[in-house]
């Protein structure tokens, strides 16, 4: 059902956990639906760049793999660049996802975007 890449990220997730003292937090999903993702980021203020990013995820194999992949894709990118990471980009980077998983379990990019928005909102104050 899953590609080797999905299984690799599921079994050996990258950047799992929480960034200490995060600059932005994004959480999406709902336990009732079986998927919740929490993305925490540390931002280099001078360069507007994601220094560190971590995830915690409740969900299926695809949910965990997409979360892991999003953190890999986002690390080191500027906030503007990271915001462009879409569901399709994440799925493609994983060599594709089963069609039924494209929407319900591929929320990680939304989580990342929320974390960036959270950072910007905090920063604007």
């Amino acid at each position: 059902m899953y590609t080797e890449k999905v299984m690799d990220h599921f079994q050996n997730p990258r950047n799992m956990g929480e960034v200490e003292d995060p600059d932005g937090v994004g959480e999406v999903g709902n336990p009732q639906c079986g998927d919740v993702m929490r993305i925490t980021i540390k931002v280099d203020e001078n360069e507007d760049r994601i220094e560190d990013v971590k995830f915690k995820t409740l969900g299926c194999g695809a949910a965990i793999a997409t979360s892991s992949m999003v953190t890999e894709l986002a690390k080191g990118k500027t906030l503007d660049e990271a915001q462009e990471i879409s569901k399709k980009v994440v799925a493609d980077a994983l060599g594709g996802l089963p069609p039924q998983k494209m929407h319900c379990s591929n929320l990680a990019s939304d989580g990342l975007r929320k974390a960036i928005e959270d950072y910007r909102a905090r920063h604007a104050q």
Partner: peptide
């Protein structure tokens, strides 16, 4: 936790 990830693991 969620069942599919238990099953897969």
């Amino acid at each position: 936790i969620e069942g599919e990830s238990i099953m897969l693991s």
